[in-house]
């Protein structure tokens, strides 16, 4: 009998080359990090049950579910608004999966863990580079830590939110993009960041 190995392969595995891209000889203005192998569950309230879902989620996560475009951190997950009466649960290590959430939350759940690629963007030129990709105003007054948006980049739907700042104070922008578009958007990001120099990494760790 043949032995099958089930290797999980990121949609960016081919395109992402760890190291530096674009301008050299300057301190890279952009840091692009792919976060791999996360759990992502989309939760939608059923008709007339947004309040019940909110209570169940509060009980489960200890925080109120975002009811506006925001991302909320809990001890072991991030809840990201994804539309009216719906949100994503982003986590790692099997803590919040279909199996564990379905019994706990009274809503319509869909596993999106493999449907998205997560890239975090930071660095001195992060906002400048994102201005080429995103029509959203990312000025700190307009898009503070915890702000989120269901929006588009390169005519492709993405979920964008600002995570906690880096230890050096730099803002961190997280982009959840559709997996089948990821390689294409990745190249667009590299093109957009090339003039500032790009540091490329991937990690299994959620920020």
């Amino acid at each position: 009998m043949v032995e099958f190995s089930w290797v999980s392969r990121s949609p960016l595995e081919h395109a992402l080359v760890t190291g530096t891209d674009g301008a050299r000889g300057i301190e890279a203005g952009i840091s692009l990090t792919e976060i791999r192998n996360f759990d992502l569950i989309q939760v939608m309230a059923r008709r007339g049950q947004a309040a019940e879902l909110g209570q169940a989620a509060k009980a489960r996560f200890g925080v109120a579910v975002p009811d506006a475009p925001k991302a909320v951190r809990t001890s072991d997950a991030t809840l990201i608004w994804s539309g009216p009466d719906q949100f994503f649960v982003l986590s790692k290590g099997g803590k919040h999966t279909m199996q564990t959430l379905e019994p706990a939350l009274s809503g319509s759940l869909s596993d999106q863990s493999h449907a998205r690629v997560l890239v975090s963007i930071s660095g001195a030129k992060a906002r400048t580079m994102l201005a080429k990709l995103s029509s959203i105003d990312l000025h700190p007054d307009a898009f503070p830590v915890g702000a989120a948006a269901a929006t588009s980049m390169d005519h492709t739907s993405v979920t964008l939110w600002r995570g906690g700042d880096r230890t050096d104070g730099q803002a961190v922008f997280n982009v959840l993009m559709f997996a089948t578009f990821a390689e294409s958007l990745w190249h667009t990001m590299l093109d957009s960041g090339a003039e500032y120099g790009v540091d490329i990494n991937h990690t299994e760790r959620l920020a």
Partner: peptide, 14 residues
Amino acid sequence: ELDVQLTSVSDQWA
């Protein structure tokens, strides 16, 4: 009036 929810899972499944 129908209690139905839609989610694209096109990219979730190979």
